[in-house]
Amino acid sequence: MTGIAVITILAVIIGAILGYASSWFPADNDSLVEKIDRLLPQTQCAQCGYPGCRPYAEALANGDAEIDQCPPGGSEGIAALAALLDRKVIPLNPQYGVEKPLSVAVIREAECIGCTLCIKACPVDAIIGAPKLMHTVIYDHCTGCELCLPPCPVDCIDLVSDV
């Protein structure tokens, strides 16, 4: 009888400690996300289907995503992810895009009407400009994510391979 009581009390105490610990010290998932995030190219292009590199890293850490969804990372990126996550190296899934050389967006400034739509689309704030004034791209900050291309109403943005 005492045995059962002791075990029950112990179980309750340990359960309480564990419950407390799990709520106050969440599992060290973040460091894995951080590690994955470091391997991703940070173009923030959302081609993987997630709104940025960090969300994709979180999905990978949770096991919701495959490692073949990042076209800018390419085969090199997939190999690095496979090594980190101990998964098999697989080719890039063409559904998400194809591996392209690094490029930057260039605004044909004479044609820009100053609508600010590309500025809102840019995930890394690499476009500067003001309403009804010419916009331009800060090339050093541009990741070549192509997100500014679809919103442009006058199609004055080109992607040129990096020089």
Binding site: R38, P41, Q42, Q44, G52, C53, D125
Partner: peptide
């Protein structure tokens, strides 16, 4: 160089978020 560029992009993305 790629790592430096990626770090910069990440920083700017986080700030924007």
């Amino acid at each position: 160089n790629e790592q430096i560029a990626a770090d910069l992009a990440k920083q700017r993305y986080d700030k924007r978020q």
